[in-house]
Each structure stands twice: as structure tokens, then as C-alpha cells.
């Protein structure tokens, strides 16, 4: 099992203690432990957030391989959009306890429907948008014990309208994608302006 997750000289190192391994190797061992019982679903909670980019890339490659070789489904929990874009098939965006958007990765990154998703994508630095100011989301995530009424994202939303403060939006389907937004309009595409994305 250790060999499968890429630990060199696995048979010799079986007797070593965790502190004798590097961070990347320890993360591989965690993945090996999770795979011992041959699960059909692997839940990975921020598995690369403490790692260097090079080790992160290696762990992502490992997860891709496991998925192709063993058909393991992966629920990958992350705040790193880059990693999601590179690894995942579908993305579910959560805000204050509920799903605000769900869909395939490619259309979601190219044309995010929910203002929160739009803002998150615009906030990530990319080589393609070098030097431009990064978009930020004003305010902070509300406390789960004191949620705003109506749309929970409304206090921070660039497109907020009065209706959002009263009515809590439903998750609606559009072309196989789902979005929870009061002012999202399927006929005109999506939320009217797209100024959040400074592309």
C-alpha cells in the first residue's frame, strides 16, 4: 500500500515513526491509511493546504491515479480554486451552510452563475491576469448562529436587490447546473452584470 502511494523503499520504512517523514510523505501515508479498506468514496479535507506547490501537484497526481486505477470516488474539500479546477469533475460551492452553486467544473469556472462563485474566481491570482487588482468580497462569512434573513449572501453581494433581503432563494436547475439566487434569470443567461470578473 505504501508503494502505491509513492513512498520510496516502503518495506524498509515500515518501522519508522511519522516525525521521520516529510510533510508530503506523511500526507501520502494518510491517504494510504484511508485506502486500506478499499473504499468506494474517499473524502479528502484540504489534503494539500499545508504543502508546497510541488508536493501539492504530486498529491493531486496520486489522487488522479487512484481514481483511474481503482474507480474511487473523491469528495475533495478545499478553498483552493486552482486545485479544484485541476482535479475535479464537478464543483459544489457552499456559503453559510447551504449550496449556492453546483455544476461541472469547466462551465462553472468559465461562466459562474452565482455572485459568490463569480467573486471567488475573480479573487484568485492567475498568470493570465498579471498585475490587475484582485477582486475581493467585502465583509465576512456570517456566524452560523446569526444568519441573515433572505439570501444569506445578500449583505456581501455586488448584485443585491431588495427581494434578496426578504426571500430565501431556492436551488434551481438550469441546463444541468444548479444555482441558488433570487435574481438569476435563465432567459437572459445569468446575473445581469458581470463586473465582478475583472477579466
Amino acid at each position: 500500500m505504501l508503494e502505491q502511494v509513492g513512498i520510496p523503499d516502503a518495506s524498509e520504512r515500515i518501522g519508522t515513526y511519522p516525525h521521520q517523514f516529510s510533510g508530503g510523505m506523511r500526507q501520502r501515508i494518510m491517504i494510504a491509511m484511508a485506502l486500506l479498506l478499499e473504499p468506494k468514496l474517499l473524502i479528502a479535507d484540504e489534503p494539500t493546504s499545508a504543502l508546497d506547490v510541488t508536493l501539492e501537484a504530486q498529491i493531486l497526481e496520486l489522487l488522479r491515479r487512484l481514481r483511474h486505477e481503482r474507480g474511487t470516488a473523491i469528495l475533495f474539500i478545499s478553498h483552493a480554486l486552482g486545485v479544484v479546477a485541476q482535479l475535479c469533475d464537478r464543483i459544489l460551492v457552499m456559503y453559510a451552510g447551504s449550496t449556492v452553486e453546483l455544476g461541472d467544473v469547466l462551465p462553472t469556472f468559465e461562466r459562474p452563475l452565482h455572485p459568490y462563485t463569480q467573486a471567488l474566481i475573480a479573487a484568485a491570482p492567475t498568470r493570465g491576469r498579471r498585475g490587475e487588482p484582485l477582486a475581493t468580497i467585502p465583509g465576512k462569512v456570517p456566524s452560523l448562529s446569526a444568519l441573515p434573513t433572505g439570501c444569506k449572501f445578500a449583505p456581501r453581494c455586488a448584485h443585491v436587490q431588495d427581494v434578496n433581503l426578504e426571500r430565501e432563494p431556492e436551488l434551481v436547475e438550469f441546463d444541468g447546473r444548479y444555482v441558488r439566487c433570487n435574481i438569476y434569470d435563465p432567459s437572459s443567461g445569468y446575473v445581469a452584470t458581470n463586473e465582478l470578473q475583472s477579466r
Binding site: L60, A85, Q86, F109
Partner: peptide, 15 residues
């Protein structure tokens, strides 16, 4: 090559 760009179209790059 190790940087995960937030752009699914660049998937090929990381490999």
C-alpha cells in the same frame, strides 16, 4: 508546472 491555475482549460499543463 506545479501551480494549480484556477482554469480547468489548463489541466494539460500540470501533467
Amino acid at each position: 508546472s506545479a501551480v494549480s491555475e484556477p482554469d480547468p482549460r489548463q489541466r494539460s499543463r500540470s501533467h
